Amino acid sequence: MKRILVYGMTDNFGGMEAYIHNIYQHLDKTKIQFDFVCDFPKMTLSDYYLENGCKIYFIPPKNQGLFNSLWAMWKVIKENNYSVIYFNIMNAGYVLNMLPAFLLRKKIIAHSHNADTDKKNLHYKLRGLLNFVAKVKLACSNAAGLFMFGKKEQYYVINNAINLDKYSYSREKYIQLRHKLGWNDKKIILYVARMNHQKNPFFALDIMKELKLSIPNVVMAYVGTGELKEDIQQYISDNNLDNVVLLGLRNDVNELMIAADIFILPSLFEGLPIVAVEAQAAGLPILLSENISKETKLVNSAHFLPINDISIWVKEVEQILVNSGNNRFSDGLALTKAGYDIKRVANNVQQILVN
């Protein structure tokens, strides 16, 4: 059995963490095992991974001293003799985390999970070094690959696949889950996003401000947490948005997807958001920012809108909610054909990591 050291997990269960978790659950554990190096004080799902035989090493973050962080990374790799380090990254600045592995002559796999960044200067300064250091380059979409590595580099697209069976929609499930959740006759807008600048949360809240006037029984179920949590709570309070419910982190997002009426994601930028794949698997009508890669559209229920005009979003949401439930179904076959079945993708990733 080969043990792979994985970097990229944080203390917040977001899209990258969901990708790693989905892959891990479908690995052949007789051939491969994940261990984790984490530069956060705690790691999401740590109990699950420890129970399944993974090791977790905590190291200081770079902002507490670059040398201390890299020295700790060096010791983890050296003392445990890892031959492959799998870096899941958001911009080229993470190449600094790779330097200990590079100096120890280990195989470095870099996986891009974003198609833009707020740290553009750092990203473009270090992209050349990233391309030199990484032996294997992966990306969640073509847009994420071009952003991370540039046009001249070869990279492989690894789809953000999911367990499609968990998201299969039926009218019976919809009714049962809504009763269980207490949603009943409410019109539910689902918004699953980390509470940070990239996800454009105040735009989503402003949509709810407008909808409060036109659809009295509309509610936004907001799943997620993050650094903007207190600002978001204050904004909701200041604007009397009693039609927004903060659900925090959840382990039943598949059920929320089935029970909701529409999904929105007005992000400023993305790689290929796994929540958008999940929403489409559940047959949800889905509205995405035009800044999100068009590769994200897998079935006809997904639509792209500009984020410079809230009125367009409000109008689209109103139209969808009026017709909600009509002709909704899960097109698992289309998603399988598009390459989003987790079993196949996990097998491909395993081959890359082991070989």
Score class of each variant (00 low, 15 high):
residue 97 N to H: 14
residue 97 N to D: 15
residue 97 N to G: 14
residue 98 M to W: 03
residue 98 M to Y: 08
residue 98 M to Q: 09
residue 98 M to L: 13
residue 98 M to F: 07
residue 99 L to P: 06
residue 99 L to A: 14
residue 99 L to N: 05
residue 100 P to T: 04
residue 100 P to C: 13
residue 100 P to I: 12
residue 100 P to Y: 11
residue 100 P to A: 10
residue 101 A to W: 03
residue 101 A to R: 00
residue 101 A to G: 12
residue 101 A to N: 09
residue 102 F to D: 09
residue 102 F to T: 08
residue 102 F to Q: 13
residue 102 F to V: 12
residue 102 F to Y: 15
residue 102 F to H: 14
residue 103 L to T: 07
residue 103 L to K: 03
residue 103 L to N: 09
residue 103 L to Y: 04
residue 104 L to Y: 00
residue 104 L to M: 13
residue 104 L to G: 03
residue 104 L to E: 01
residue 105 R to L: 14
residue 105 R to Y: 07
residue 105 R to W: 12
residue 105 R to K: 15
residue 106 K to W: 04
residue 106 K to I: 08
residue 107 K to P: 04
residue 107 K to R: 15
residue 107 K to I: 10
residue 107 K to H: 11
residue 107 K to W: 01
residue 108 I to F: 01
residue 108 I to A: 09
residue 108 I to D: 02
residue 108 I to W: 02
residue 108 I to M: 10
residue 108 I to N: 08
residue 108 I to Q: 03
residue 108 I to R: 03
residue 109 I to C: 09
residue 109 I to A: 05
residue 110 A to W: 03
residue 110 A to Y: 05
residue 110 A to D: 02
residue 110 A to R: 05
residue 110 A to N: 06
residue 111 H to R: 01
residue 111 H to W: 04
residue 111 H to D: 10
residue 111 H to C: 08
residue 111 H to G: 04
residue 111 H to I: 09
residue 112 S to D: 01
residue 113 H to F: 06
residue 113 H to P: 09
residue 113 H to Q: 09
residue 113 H to G: 11
residue 113 H to L: 06
residue 113 H to C: 04
residue 114 N to Y: 06
residue 114 N to M: 04
residue 114 N to D: 15
residue 114 N to T: 10
residue 115 A to D: 12
residue 115 A to G: 15
residue 115 A to P: 02
residue 115 A to S: 15
residue 115 A to Y: 02
residue 115 A to F: 01
residue 115 A to W: 07
residue 116 D to I: 08
residue 116 D to H: 10
residue 116 D to E: 12
residue 116 D to V: 07
residue 116 D to F: 09
residue 117 T to Q: 00
residue 117 T to V: 05
residue 117 T to I: 03
residue 117 T to E: 07
residue 117 T to L: 05
residue 117 T to F: 01
residue 118 D to K: 00
residue 119 K to H: 13
residue 119 K to M: 09
residue 120 K to G: 03
residue 120 K to A: 10
residue 120 K to W: 08
residue 121 N to T: 14
residue 121 N to A: 15
residue 121 N to C: 12
residue 121 N to R: 11
residue 122 L to H: 02
residue 122 L to V: 12
residue 122 L to W: 02
residue 122 L to A: 14
residue 123 H to D: 11
residue 123 H to Q: 06
residue 123 H to V: 05
residue 124 Y to S: 11
residue 124 Y to L: 10
residue 124 Y to C: 00
residue 124 Y to Q: 04
residue 125 K to I: 13
residue 125 K to T: 11
residue 125 K to G: 13
residue 126 L to S: 02
residue 126 L to V: 02
residue 126 L to M: 12
residue 126 L to E: 00
residue 126 L to H: 03
residue 127 R to I: 00
residue 128 G to N: 13
residue 128 G to P: 06
residue 128 G to E: 05
residue 128 G to A: 11
residue 129 L to H: 00
residue 129 L to K: 03
residue 129 L to D: 01
residue 129 L to C: 02
residue 130 L to G: 04
residue 130 L to C: 06
residue 130 L to H: 03
residue 130 L to W: 02
residue 130 L to P: 01
residue 130 L to Y: 04
residue 130 L to S: 01
residue 131 N to W: 08
residue 131 N to G: 11
residue 131 N to Y: 11
residue 131 N to L: 11
